[in-house]
């Protein structure tokens, strides 16, 4: 459990997924990917291995992942094979509202 700040970058310990925190509630948060806790982008990780079977949906670059309550949002900056979860809840890609290009 760590305190997660907006702008923090994290990576999966078991796949290629990288994310940046866009929104997070105050206080500690348990973020995982592929079933294992995510680590800081520059942190060494000894976990290795592969995503667990129940968290292997994969991530897509550029998608924003959110929880049911809508107070957590992570931008996937690098795709991987694991699924992202917060406190055990699998995060889902946010629906993109198509906007006309204004610039």
């Amino acid at each position: 459990m760590t305190e997660v700040k907006v702008g923090t970058r994290l990576r999966s310990a078991v796949c290629d997924t990288e994310v940046m925190v866009i929104a997070a509630p105050a206080g500690d948060l348990e973020l995982s990917c592929g079933g294992s806790p995510m680590v800081g982008l520059d942190e060494e990780s000894s976990a290795g291995g592969a995503p667990s079977a129940d968290a292997a949906g994969g991530t897509q670059m550029g998608k924003r992942y959110t929880n049911d309550a809508g107070d957590i949002e992570l931008l996937c900056t690098k795709a991987g094979a694991g699924s992202i979860a917060a406190g055990g809840e699998i995060l889902v890609p946010k629906d993109a509202k198509p906007l006309p290009s204004s610039d």
Binding site: I22, M61, G62, R64, L75, P98, S102
Partner: peptide, 9 residues
């Protein structure tokens, strides 16, 4: 940008 542009769209 994140609020108005879809990546790689």
């Amino acid at each position: 940008i994140l609020g108005s542009v879809e990546f790689a769209s």
